[in-house]
Amino acid sequence: MKPPSRPSRKPAVKPASVRPPRRAEKPAPDKPRAERPVAAKGAAPKKPAPQKPAFRKAPPRAARASGAAEPRPEGGREEHRIAKLLARAGIASRREIERMIAEGRIAVNGEVLTTPATLLTSLAGVTVDGAPVGETEQTRLFLFHKPSGCLTAERDFSGRKTIYDFLPKDLPRLMPVGRLDMTTEGLLMLTNDGGLKRTLELPSTGIERTYRARAFGSVSQAQLESLIEGVEIDGMRYGRIDANLERSTGHNKWIELTLTEGKNREVRRVLEHLGLSVSRLIRTRYGPFDLADSAPGALVEIRKGDLDRFLAALKKLKK
């Protein structure tokens, strides 16, 4: 007797309706798609036409003080006041730029500006006296040995000499970092970067300035050391001053003073407060830069490597 045969186990076939439809089986759309233009072989893709930089007025101080975050403009580029951008480009100081705006000398895309509170992302389209502003030059820093008897100013209407009478004519526009009185001589920093100028001038940056003063009168080292705590003169508070008596010949004395604020006539006023009469004042150092043995009127540019290291150190100080 034969055993019953087993049914064959063939794989079940899925119905056709379960299978995913092929791409070719998709119904054609009602409207044919617009064909994309094919670029010629090797041709570069067309770039969008450059847009004119939009500018707007800065918010009032109360709104800025509230701490509310400002929306970034399209493209993510940070906005700055036009005076700050022009100062960085070496056009003029911020105060001078504000005067130029009030005189109607600055325009953006042909529209004359009426307020310095204008925010821009770049200087594209900006003109000064009808001339377009070029791109920002590379930051440069110079050491100038200011002679006595000249002003730290761009011009003097009474005809007195200024520091610019001693500078070569082929240099870009340079701005002094701080000021030295007419009779004060020594190291004066010059730069084409308004942002760097402002950073170096701020007392909060903590950059030391060293002076040597020749004074007439009587003073002790203890009196000079008391200046380390600061002093108040006629309602004006002067910060820490590290003062040392270098040498004394009778009533003539050479005194070295190091400070970080650099207020107007600070060294002279402090020494006069101690009963001294200053007959000569020389600034010998500003931060890591010193006067060395340069002659009055000499101008020396800081090398790029040294400048880059100095700028990197400044960024760390600001943090």
Rank of each mutant, 00 (worst) to 15 (best):
D293V: 14
T115K: 05
A222M: 07
G134W: 02
G297T: 05
L120W: 05
K52E: 12
V278L: 13
P176L: 10
T127V: 03
E232K: 04
T191Y: 03
P288D: 09
R105L: 07
A298R: 06
A87L: 09
L224Q: 02
D306V: 08
R61N: 06
G110K: 00
F144L: 09
S122D: 13
P27N: 02
P116E: 13
D129I: 05
P60E: 04
D129M: 03
L314Y: 03
W254R: 13
L113W: 03
D181C: 05
F289M: 11
L281E: 10
L174C: 01
E229V: 06
P176R: 11
K315E: 14
G305Y: 15
I255G: 01
L274T: 03
E35K: 13
I101A: 03
R209S: 03
E225I: 05
L259F: 01
R140M: 08
V231H: 00
R72G: 13
F157H: 11
V219S: 06
G125T: 08
L274Y: 04
A54E: 12
L307P: 03
N264V: 01
P29F: 02
L120S: 03
I255H: 00
T260L: 07
R77G: 05
E261L: 03
R77W: 08
I233P: 00
R19F: 10
L188E: 11
A298S: 13
V108Y: 05
R88V: 11
E261Q: 07
D308P: 00
R160F: 10
P168L: 07
T205F: 10
G275W: 01
P50D: 02
M236A: 14
G195A: 11
F289T: 08
E79H: 04
L174W: 03
T152K: 11
V278W: 09
E185W: 08
L311P: 04
S218L: 15
T121Y: 12
A89W: 03
R237M: 05
A124K: 15
L271E: 02
H145A: 06
G275H: 03
K315M: 08
V231Y: 00
K31W: 04
L281Q: 10
E96D: 13
D30H: 14
A40Y: 03
G235W: 00
A153Q: 07
A117L: 13
R9Q: 14
T121R: 14
P168W: 08
R209Q: 09
E35M: 10
D293I: 11
R94H: 06
